[in-house]
Design a protein around this nucleic acid. Structure first.
Lengths: 157, 157
DNA sequence: CATGAAAAAGATAAGCA
DNA sequence: TGCTTATCTTTTTCATG
């Protein structure tokens, strides 16, 4: 099913996850090849799903979204239908960037990005706390962020 | 200092954060304009820092990184030099995707992406727990992920 | 913001190791 | 099969009105 990545493939992925505007020519030069094989490998990586998409990374704060909050949630029931319904509702909120089911102190960990504390409170009151079967809710307000990347470590794959 | 985004700018940002391979031509068509104003706006958005970069989004699991863990950490001291040293060390670990200083139950919340539980344990033993002034460490192992995006909600900016 | 031309990049094809 | 070289097409980029 899944085609195996060689060294060159991972090098290409490492380059593109840092900067997808790099031309095939410049990548080829860096890897000591010509453009065609690089081009074909990239197409293959896209087709096989190793590359999911290409996106512009925006500056949250510049566009007015200055607050990141992580929210740890426990539910009052754990039946399958509860969980599915909860996830569906959560995913529909545009403020929610991530929703993970976790083991440990919480059932779910959410990452939310909003304008400010006011907007967060509005979200809590008018959206989150209206969900049924909601148990405990703990907020971790981000004070500052030292690192925040989508790049994944390809050095060992 | 900061130039104000109009409706068209935010539309362009919304399009590019979903798919940065869209041509200016196709964006122009969607917005009912010609290519040059769209082109100029994009350049401006890049120059002003609204667009930080363009990246390829990879499929973590396909490249062999199947486990995401959030780690809540408290430190044993809160002096400024402690915090700075801690953040510097953490940021150098390639397994760490995010490092946030938070208020609430923890001092720091980390997001880590690794191969599997073994790799996570190795990280804990050979890297994280070697840091001095480390207090309590709580792991939230991701069981499944309902939503995980970098797209931010531009509907209200 | 429109037009249009030059430069660059993307994409494809024929042939070689 | 995977690379090279060469060619063609599309997009980007920019000057001018």
């Amino acid at each position: 099913m899944s085609y195996t990545l060689d060294k060159i493939d991972t090098q290409i992925l490492a380059i593109l996850q840092k900067d997808s505007n790099r031309t095939t020519k410049s990548i080829a030069k860096e890897l000591g090849m010509t453009t065609s094989p690089v081009f074909e490998r990239i197409k293959k990586l896209e087709k096989e799903g190793y590359i999911k998409k290409y996106v512009a990374v925006l500056d949250n704060k510049k566009v007015g979204l200055k607050l990141t909050v992580f929210i740890g949630i426990t539910l009052q029931g754990h039946t399958r239908s509860y969980l599915e319904k909860f996830v569906t509702e959560i995913n529909n909120f545009p403020e929610i960037a991530e929703c993970h089911r976790v083991s440990g102190n919480y059932d779910y960990l959410l990452k939310l990005i909003v304008e400010d504390i006011q907007a967060y409170e509005t979200f809590l009151i008018s959206k989150l706390t209206l969900l049924p079967y909601l148990g405990n809710v703990q907020s971790l307000i981000t004070l500052s962020t030292g690192k925040e990347t989508n790049e994944i470590d390809l050095s060992r794959v």
